[in-house]
């Protein structure tokens, strides 16, 4: 092999290696950029869904407040309602922290009067009416959490399932208080 051909060969090897290096670098940059974009989109999607869950918890907290001050409930029932309200406050706090961690702004609560209007609180005439409304909301909330888990990022699956469990627990107590029979079929929620 002549000196010239050796030089050419070295150049080809160098350029080939550089090309491979550049390609790998460029690919890494593109992939990295795409991953960042996808992660941002996922975070943005999670913020939207978690904020809907915060709105759900705000409404639940307000519903128990309206019920507790309605004058329609026995004192013992008020105590249970206040305990359930505390659970919803706990849910709200966890969800608010999650949204803030993702860089979002947590959904704000509406006025108590607005919730009363949304839930048609003026139509509640006795304790049974209040318990039925609470049951509908808790049952709906349990189903809502179970239904949104597949749309959430995996980091939030467990917490959503935990909240669904709490809502189902509330629903079971309320259904029992209303004398409703135990469902015969399995998989009652979701």
């Amino acid at each position: 092999m002549s000196n010239n051909s050796m030089i050419l060969s070295s150049r080809r090897a160098f350029l080939g290696a550089t090309g491979k290096t550049l390609s790998a670098t460029a690919l890494a940059m593109v992939v990295g950029s795409n991953i960042k974009t996808a992660a941002a989109a996922d975070a943005s999607q999670d913020i939207e869904i978690l904020n809907a869950a915060i709105a759900l918890e705000h409404e639940g907290i307000a519903a128990y407040q309206i019920a507790a001050t309605s004058g329609l409930l026995d004192p013992a029932v008020v105590d249970i309602g206040v305990t359930f309200q505390g659970h919803h406050k706990g849910h709200r706090d966890v969800l608010v922290k999650a949204v803030e961690t993702l860089g979002g702004k947590p959904a704000e609560e509406k006025s108590l009067g607005a919730y009363a209007a949304d839930l048609k609180a003026s139509s509640l005439k006795n304790q049974v009416d209040v318990l039925r409304l609470a049951l509908d909301l808790e049952r709906g909330a349990a189903n809502a959490y179970l239904g949104l888990i597949p749309s959430l990022g995996p980091d939030y699956h467990q917490v959503a399932a935990q909240m669904a469990g709490d809502e189902a627990f509330h629903a079971a107590i309320l259904a029992n208080a209303l004398g409703q029979p135990i469902p015969k079929a399995a998989l009652m929620f979701g």
Binding site: A52, A117, D118, N143
Partner: peptide, 17 residues
């Protein structure tokens, strides 16, 4: 509708949805 949607929606009032 009551069971699956009622957690967030009503027919006549804007709620969560």
């Amino acid at each position: 509708y009551k069971r699956r949607c009622g957690g967030c929606h009503s027919l006549d009032n804007n709620r969560i949805g």
